[in-house]
Design a protein around this nucleic acid. Structure first.
Lengths: 208, 208, 208, 208
DNA sequence: CATGAATGAGTATTCATTCAT
DNA sequence: AATGAATGAATACTCATTCAT
């Protein structure tokens, strides 16, 4: 079963299946997405589905892999830029890119992210979390004074997870109580105020 | 068909069904929970299930309602206490209660919360968000100097949503990168540093 | 799944399913018999099938059990009679009953026996073999002079297995080269000649 | 579509397919053997399979044909030898060769024989039965005194069919109640005793 | 009110067969 | 001739829902 594609045509079919999977999951959710739906949307037969994926689970896995890869591909090139920005600006830049990214293709990624959130909280978001952690590290390295900050791992954990969820929830909300702009500014303020305060508290007593 | 329970026995049966629903969802997840499972665990027949709930969806709705009511019932009595605490203490107090609450009955609430997260991000968490907003308001009212804080709605939104998700994710993670204690302290620091910094920035120019 | 019938109606349904299974297997063979066929013939829905049998295999098992029980029920009452007959007569009596039995219900049992033969040669025929072995033993006990016979286990094995197959093959053959009467007489002769010869060879040397 | 092989390469491919068919059927049984399996084992593509055989059934038919031909090829050269042996020796010689033959290639032939037994009792075993009948005839011709035997067709039918099945069942049984040696000796005794007794009963009254 | 037997549309998956390359 | 991708009907099995008792 599920053999590796050996021809160009095969590769295209695999892509069509993953694409269809995105569309179906975005439209109906994971639970209501059937192999027949995917096959129909992909414009192929059910049988062909199983030429390339040994079962439905594998299709979703491939989709999640693609999702994660796309997020990473979006973030990766930003790393050097972000690392050099003031922290508030860095946050807003990332958030701007996220808004754009999650809105693509009729919010396909946003809807899939929501599906992934409830189930395998860790597994699928893992690589993304790693890139974000990397961004944090790079940023600290470009701002040596921040090395003084305490609890960087905990604060990163909170900020990354909390931030992602706040964004996803906000973008999913048809009538959010605040604007995305306010959300972005709020997150930027939250982190930059925190840093500022930490710097203050941990400042060497050279004042007197 | 589904009628409102009007007798004691009915009420007890409805409770048994909701209880069974909690148990099944915590054990197998929403997708794998069948009406038969619920009926078996509740100790009644499938037929009786439909005497009280017109369909499966309604059972889950009732369960979520109960979940939300329980969270609110847990938080409500804390409001006056929290309102009077310094903000960092307030956060840690709430987090302590959440940890206990989500761990009850073999993490029943935690597991259900995860199920609810991906699907109906808004609908079910709504009332909880409202109580938390209320806590924020009460706190501000007991700390009038905080009225000076800008963007309270945005910051509350971020903190409440981000905080809830960070907690749920952390408690669901079998090997979290930080301890719950660190998470709680981090969230407390995050908010209190933010407030401190805001107070600083918005301080009236009494310096000269 | 597959719960035990608790009402009269249930018992009747279980019987209908086994009956339908016999009909389908006799008509199409095991491999071509589908759960839908069985359900249709039984006059019930597929769903009901699985109320009583956890899977297709279980239906076939029940059918085989019934088959074996029916053969045993046919043979059992004959045991005391057979045990007292001369061996040739005993064989012919059994063969007569087998012919009748296998021909019942449009050769239902014959066709099922053929299916069982290729697959689980041992498992399903086991109990039948045991009854036949018992008949042999009873016969010997009523004919003490036969205790002198050597190799009774081997000869029983050969005769029982060979005999059953010869019968099944013959009855399944639309144009057999010999008549059933000849087959029966042949088997009777085969065994009685063997016994006679053995008695001769093992006779105490009273000749001189 | 299916054409007769007309070239060497074709012949080799056909052989490879039949060989693969044997391997698959012996390993998984007829029901679980798929065209893909056969093609894989044969080292060709499914498409090529249909170049040589119009459908799966034809492959199995060819396999059975080959099986029968192999049995016949095994028996044929023995005929002149067997015809000259005393009947008991003849039987044991044949049984010895059968044991060896059915055990070849990890019991390939034995397993296929079992598959064939339940389904097409007549069709495939026919030619084999004919050779065995021929052996009987040749034997009688070399032992003219046996012409006196009555019911030769019936007895041959019984002995051949019963014997084959007894052998197949015995060799398929992981823990048979008697040894193959005992089985062979038993069959030899059965027939030679029968013959001896018949000779006795039909002896011309030369006593006086 | 309670029961649990019955339903049947729906689901994932398989596999013999075809056909464009 | 050979390939292997594509097909889609068919299969075993599930489960929310109904209804006769």
């Amino acid at each position: 079963m599920a053999r590796k594609p050996q021809q160009q045509r095969s590769k295209a079919t695999v892509d069509a299946i993953i694409e269809a999977s995105f569309i179906c999951v975005a439209r109906d959710g994971t639970a209501a997405t059937t192999t027949r739906h995917i096959a129909d949307v992909a414009g192929i037969s059910v049988g062909s589905l199983y030429e390339y994926f040994s079962n439905k689970e594998m299709i979703f896995d491939a989709m999640n892999e693609r999702f994660v890869a796309d997020v990473v591909a979006m973030l990766q090139p930003l790393v050097p830029v972000i690392a050099r920005l003031p922290i508030g600006e860095a946050v807003k830049l990332i958030l701007g890119h996220f808004e754009d990214f999650l809105g693509r293709n009729d919010q396909r990624y946003l809807k899939c992210a929501r599906q992934a959130m409830g189930v395998d909280i860790k597994d699928h978001l893992g690589p993304i979390t790693r890139v974000l952690m990397d961004i944090v590290m790079q940023h600290v390295m470009h701002h040596p004074e921040h090395m003084r900050l305490r609890h960087i791992p905990a604060m990163s954990y909170i900020f990354i997870n909390g931030g992602i969820f706040a964004i996803v929830r906000h973008l999913s909300d048809p009538s959010p109580p605040i604007s995305y702009e306010e959300l972005a500014q709020g997150l930027a303020d939250m982190i930059s105020h925190y840093v500022a305060q930490e710097m203050l508290l941990t400042a060497p007593a050279t004042q007197d």
